[in-house]
Amino acid sequence: MTAYSVPERVAHVERDADGLPQVFLMRLPDGPPVALEGTAALIWTFAAEGEADVATAVAKAVGLPREEIADDVEAYLVHLVETGLLTCAD
C-alpha cells in the first residue's frame, strides 16, 4: 500500500454539505482552485488522513465491495499525485 500526504503548498478545506462530502483545494501561491465532491472527496480525504488502504475505506463508506472500486480508486489516486494535489509519502 502506498502512503499519501498533502503537499506542503496545497491549501485545503473539507466540509460536509447535506451529507455530501466536499473538498476545496488550491496549489499555492497561484494554482487554480479545485473542488471535489462525493467519492472523489472521500478518496482525497482518506488518502490525506494517511489511511493505509484507501480503496477499502472508500468501499466501506459507500457500501460497495472493494473489488468493484479498487481499480478506479487507485487510478484516481495516481491522478491526484500527478496533478500535485497529493504526494506519495513513501
Rank of each mutant, 00 (worst) to 15 (best):
F46V: 04
F46A: 03
A47E: 12
A47N: 07
E49W: 00
E49F: 05
G50D: 03
G50C: 06
G50S: 07
E51I: 00
A52F: 01
A52E: 14
D53K: 06
D53W: 01
D53P: 00
V54Y: 09
V54L: 10
V54I: 09
A55C: 05
A55Y: 10
T56W: 09
A57I: 04
V58M: 14
V58Y: 13
V58H: 12
A59R: 10
A59P: 11
A59F: 07
A61D: 07
A61K: 06
A61R: 11
A61C: 00
V62T: 02
G63V: 01
L64D: 03
L64W: 05
L64R: 09
L64H: 03
L64P: 00
P65A: 14
P65N: 08
P65C: 05
P65L: 08
R66D: 13
R66W: 01
R66S: 07
R66E: 15
R66K: 15
E67R: 15
E68Y: 06
E68H: 14
E68L: 15
I69A: 03
I69N: 02
A70G: 04
D71F: 04
D71W: 06
D72R: 14
V73C: 09
V73Q: 11
A75C: 02
A75G: 11
Y76I: 00
L77G: 10
L77M: 07
L77Q: 13
L77H: 14
V78H: 13
H79R: 14
L80R: 13
L80F: 05
V81E: 12
E82T: 04
G84L: 10
G84Y: 04
L85M: 10
L85K: 05
L85H: 09
L85Y: 10
T87V: 08
